[in-house]
Simulated assay, not measured.
Amino acid sequence: MKQKMQKPDKREYTLMIVPHHGKSVFSLRIPIKIVKYAAVTLGICLTILSGTMLNYRYQANIATQEKIELVQLREVSSKQNVELEELAKATAELQDNMNRLNQLDSDLRRMVNSEESAAVSRSAPVRIANYNGQGGPEVKPDIKQLTTLVNELKASVSEREKSLSNLKDALIEKNERLAVTPSIWPTNGEVSSRFGWRSSPWGMGSSWHPGIDIANDIGTPIVAAADGTVVNSGWYGGYGKMIEIDHGNGIVTIYGHNSRNLVEAGQRVKKGETIAHMGSTGISTGPHLHYEVRVNGTAVNPSTFL
């Protein structure tokens, strides 16, 4: 069965323009095909235009959001740069303080002047970038530099704490040694007799004098030459009223011919503490203090400790 041939659509639209005042009428015939093509084309154009407008609005919204975010990021970045600069300055100041501590540690160790603390600090200075252009061109700090510097400062602080702790122990030990070392004069006055051989004050030739005599008025205060424990306080033969103090490490001091003892056996005394008053008890030719220093039982010249 033969298919029927579709006849072409020959319809037309007539567009008429009727002027006033009896002028001739203008007419325009438009085939239906052209109208259809025009409608399709217009639809396509409107669709494309609508899509373009929607895409434009979408892109415009994205651009607006990105602009807002960019402004916010710039503000945050500007604020972070300021904070970074302040952190760099604070870190640089901290570094300067650490360097001063290093120098102070070294100076203190030289002042201690002992074998166990003579070595200078092993805490090396921390390197730092020239953030302020000192000694070279200006360099902007960055996170990596500051992180490295902070880590170095942490290590330096640890070394500093250890070093100062050792120095503190050394100073405490030295102070303890000084405290128990008879290193001060036990009283005021004139040295009337020194350590060693001397002419006997009673005209009996030469005699060995195991200490020094310091003459002054009766009642002149006598102080402990170092920290220690009183082991004897009372009358002891030719020494008269005598005090004996044990300072440890085999060191003992003796204070004789006192008019009055102010401490008792077993009592702890401090360096510089008044322990007696000067007198002339025992075998004596006048008011004075007989002062002895003994090391492991042997009398030594007290002047070597003063």
Rank of each mutant, 00 (worst) to 15 (best):
L28E: 07
E83C: 07
V120W: 02
N132H: 10
T64F: 10
Y56K: 09
M16I: 15
G228K: 01
I218H: 00
P137K: 14
E264V: 12
L42M: 11
G237M: 03
V139K: 08
G189L: 02
E85V: 11
K33W: 01
E138F: 09
G133Q: 08
D169V: 09
P141M: 08
R177I: 10
S106H: 06
R11N: 12
E12W: 01
V269F: 00
A92F: 04
E152K: 10
A299G: 04
D105F: 01
V293E: 03
D169L: 08
G282Y: 03
S163V: 09
V150I: 15
S233F: 04
L101T: 07
H21Q: 12
E173C: 02
S78L: 09
Y239A: 01
V300H: 04
A38N: 06
T41Y: 04
T187C: 15
Q59S: 11
N232D: 14
P302C: 10
R177H: 09
A124S: 08
Q95K: 14
G51L: 13
T220F: 06
K33H: 07
E66V: 13
V126L: 05
M53V: 14
H277A: 08
E75Q: 06
T298R: 12
N130G: 13
A60E: 14
L306F: 06
G203V: 06
T64W: 02
P182W: 00
V157Y: 05
F26V: 15
V230N: 09
G211N: 04
A118M: 13
A299F: 07
K270Y: 07
L87H: 01
N216H: 08
G228H: 05
E93V: 07
K144C: 01
S106P: 00
N166T: 09
T91V: 06
H20T: 13
Y255A: 00
L149M: 10
G286S: 08
N301A: 07
Q3M: 05
D169A: 13
N151H: 10
V263Y: 00
L73R: 15
I212N: 02
V295D: 06
A124N: 05
A225P: 01
H247R: 03
G133C: 07
E176K: 13
Q59H: 09
G240Q: 01
T229S: 10
G237P: 02
L101F: 13
S117V: 14
H20M: 11
E173G: 12
N81W: 05
A90C: 02
K4V: 14
C45L: 14
A179K: 11
H209C: 03
I254S: 02
I128E: 06
R100V: 13
S165H: 11
K140L: 12
H277E: 15
I254V: 13
T181H: 03
S121T: 15
D107S: 05
T14H: 06
N175S: 15
A276M: 07
A88S: 15
S192M: 07
L146S: 11
Y236Q: 12
L49R: 01
T181M: 10
G248T: 07
S199R: 13
R29H: 11
R260V: 14
T304N: 10
K4Y: 10
V252Q: 02
A299S: 14
V269T: 03
L101R: 06
G272P: 03
H290C: 06
T91A: 06
V300F: 01
W208Q: 05
V157E: 04
G237A: 10
H290S: 04
S27P: 00
W197Q: 10
I128S: 09
R294G: 10
I218K: 07
G136W: 00
